[in-house]
C-alpha cells in the first residue's frame, strides 16, 4: 500500500486508519481504512452491500468527516481545505441525482460552476465554455432546454455527469454511476469517464456494484468488506477466487474476459443447480 508518492503531486489522497459513521445511529460504516490514491489513477471500489463503499466516497469528497483517522489531500488534512477549493478540485456524483424541483438540464449543469463564480457576479465566458464542453462531452447538448425530471434514467445520469465535469475537477468521485443503467448506457457513460481519465489525467474513484465493470474500467480495484479494505491491487489480484470466496461467499466463478483479457466473475451456478 506504499503507492502514495510523498512528493508534492497534485490531488493525491492518503487515508490513515479512517473510521466513519454513516448516520446518527453511530454504527461505523468504515473501520480503520488506510489507503493511498495517486494523482491520475483510476480506482474502482467494490464490496458487498453495506460494506462502506459510499461512505468511503463521501469521506474523500469531504462530505463525511472521519470519526477517527486522517484524510489528506496533497498532504494537507481534507478538513483544512475550504469547501469552495475542494469543489474546484473534487466532483462527487451521488448514486442518483434527484433535484428537489423542476430544473432544466442547462440549469443543473450550471450548478457545477458554483465554486467558480463570485458571490455577486454571473456566468462569464469560462463558465459558459465549461457548461457547453460538459454537455458536449456527455452528448447531452440536445437536452439542454429540457427538464431533468423528463429524462430517462440513462439520460439523467449523463446529465449528472455533465454537472460534475462542469466543475472542471481534478478528481471525479462516482458512486455506482451505472447501477440504474442498461448495458449500452452504462458503457457509454464509462466511455466518457475513461476518455477524461486518459486525455486529461483526471483521477477517478468509482464505486461499482458490478464487479465485471469495475475490472474492465479500472487498473486498480479495492475490495471493501465490513468497513475494511480486504484486497487492493490489479483486477486479477483483487478479484482472485480466494478474495471473492471470502468476501461474497461461494457464489462466484472467476473467468477471464474473452476480448479484454481481464478478470471477470460469473455466478457459480444456475438457481437450484446444486
Amino acid at each position: 500500500m506504499a503507492r502514495f508518492n510523498d512528493s508534492k503531486a497534485p490531488c493525491g489522497f492518503r487515508l490513515t486508519g479512517v473510521a466513519a459513521t454513516y448516520d446518527a445511529s453511530g454504527l461505523e460504516a468504515l473501520r480503520g481504512v488506510s489507503l493511498g490514491i495517486e494523482p491520475g489513477e483510476y480506482l474502482a471500489v467494490v464490496g458487498p452491500n453495506g460494506a462502506g463503499k459510499s461512505t468511503l466516497l463521501q469521506v474523500l469528497a469531504g462530505l463525511v468527516e472521519p470519526s477517527r483517522g486522517t484524510v489528506t489531500l496533497d498532504g494537507i488534512a481534507l478538513r483544512n481545505h475550504r469547501r469552495r477549493d475542494l469543489a474546484r478540485r473534487i466532483a462527487w456524483l451521488p448514486q442518483r441525482l434527484d433535484p428537489a424541483f423542476d430544473i432544466t438540464v442547462e440549469g443543473l449543469v450550471a450548478l457545477g460552476r458554483t465554486a467558480h463564480r463570485s458571490l455577486w457576479g454571473g456566468d462569464d465566458d469560462a463558465d459558459r465554455r465549461a457548461i457547453d464542453g460538459a454537455l458536449a462531452a456527455t452528448d447531452t447538448t440536445e437536452f439542454r432546454d429540457r427538464l431533468v425530471q423528463e429524462l430517462s434514467g440513462g439520460e439523467r445520469q449523463r446529465v449528472a455527469l455533465a454537472m460534475s465535469l462542469a466543475q472542471a475537477p481534478q478528481v471525479l468521485l462516482l458512486d455506482e454511476p451505472t447501477t440504474h443503467l442498461d448495458p449500452a448506457h452504462a458503457q457509454g457513460l464509462l466511455d466518457v469517464v475513461a476518455r477524461k481519465h486518459r486525455d486529461e489525467g483526471l483521477t477517478v474513484v468509482a464505486v461499482f456494484h458490478d464487479l465485471n465493470l469495475a475490472a474492465l474500467a479500472a487498473a486498480r480495484v479495492v475490495v471493501i468488506d465490513g468497513g475494511e479494505v480486504v484486497a487492493d491491487g490489479p483486477p486479477a489480484d483483487a478479484l482472485a477466487p480466494t478474495v471473492l470466496a471470502r468476501t461474497f461467499g461461494p457464489v462466484m466463478h472467476a473467468v477471464t474476459h474473452p476480448v479484454a483479457g481481464v478478470a471477470q466473475v460469473l455466478p457459480a451456478r444456475a438457481p437450484l443447480a446444486l
Binding site: Q58, A61, G62, L63, R83, R84, L86, A87, R88, I90, A91, W92, P94, L97, D98, P99, A100, F101, I103, L111, G112, T114, A115, R117, L119, W120, M163, Q167
Partner: peptide
C-alpha cells in the same frame, strides 16, 4: 440577493450543494 448563488444548488440536497462548493 447575495445568498441567491448558494441557494440554487440546494436543489441537489445539502450534500450535493456542498459538493459543488456551497458552505452549507
Amino acid at each position: 440577493y447575495g445568498l441567491a448563488h448558494w441557494l440554487d444548488p440546494l436543489v441537489l440536497g445539502e450534500a450535493g450543494a456542498a459538493s459543488v462548493g456551497v458552505p452549507v
